[in-house]
């Protein structure tokens, strides 16, 4: 069964008199445990597709199914619940909550999920070690480097063990060493927890880790190529 299924998705944006096509009849199936890269030039539709899969944006037409449930017709609260329990997001701009420390950012989703404090602390301590941020748990985002912030964002996305991780240009602001560490972490999670990864990128280094490359152009899927990862 597909973990993610998109059927005939269309999405247009209006900027004044100009209409921009974000998605043009896009259909794609992504199975559980897949490691997929969405590759496109700027404005190619990869972020729009990612947002539609994550329920952050609604398509004009078409269907989005996550773990067997149709989500494109869900209400806001139901979508929020779905994201909380099924999806972890990693954004290009990290998107950490500035008033919370690294540990609190990581525990945020678990706390909203209602996981007991002791369990939260244990899991956040473990993930902080895993992403190499021991000793920085009480720092706020403003006092951390871009790489450190991105690792906190990744830790936040994966600590609650979501079935799907959606990452939008996760390495765009990272140096090559940090990018490599991050991708190794993604691959390890993918292998060990069978987490599905969908990564929107135009970074060649990231594409090398994927087992499937979906190339998009002008809002359409141009090529869908399986590959042997690095």
């Amino acid at each position: 069964m597909s973990d993610i299924r998109c059927v005939n998705l269309c999405r247009t944006f209006h900027q004044g008199d100009i209409t921009v096509t974000g998605l043009d009849h896009v259909s794609i199936d992504i199975k559980k445990g897949e490691f997929v890269c969405l590759v496109a030039p700027s404005g190619g539709g990869k972020t729009t597709l990612l947002n539609a899969i994550g329920g952050l944006d609604k398509p004009d037409s078409g269907e989005v199914w996550i773990a067997g449930k149709r989500i494109d017709n869900m209400g806001k609260s139901a979508l929020a619940e779905m994201r909380l329990n099924n999806i972890g997001f990693v954004f290009q701009a990290y998107n950490l909550i500035p008033v919370l420390t690294a540990r609190e950012n990581i525990e945020f989703v678990m706390e909203v999920q209602g996981i007991p404090a002791a369990d939260r602390h244990r899991r956040s301590a473990a993930i902080l070690t895993e992403v190499g941020l021991e000793g920085l748990e009480d720092r706020r985002p403003a006092k951390m480097s871009g790489g450190q912030q991105q690792r906190v964002a990744v830790a936040r996305a994966i600590v609650a063990k979501p079935e799907i991780v959606l990452a939008d240009e996760p390495t765009a602001n990272l140096d090559s060493s940090s990018a490599e560490q991050l991708m190794d972490l993604f691959v390890s999670l993918n292998k060990n927890h069978n987490t599905t990864f969908v990564i929107a990128t135009h970074d060649q280094r990231v594409m090398e880790y994927a087992r499937r490359i979906v190339k998009m152009l002008d809002g359409r899927i141009d090529q869908d190529i399986p590959q042997d990862p690095r």
């Binding site: 929020a80 997001f89 909550i97």
Partner: peptide, 15 residues
């Protein structure tokens, strides 16, 4: 922007 972030993480508009 922050509200957008926490909503994307799963916080409902009600919360």
């Amino acid at each position: 922007r922050e509200f957008g972030i926490v909503m994307s993480l799963g916080l409902t508009p009600g919360r």
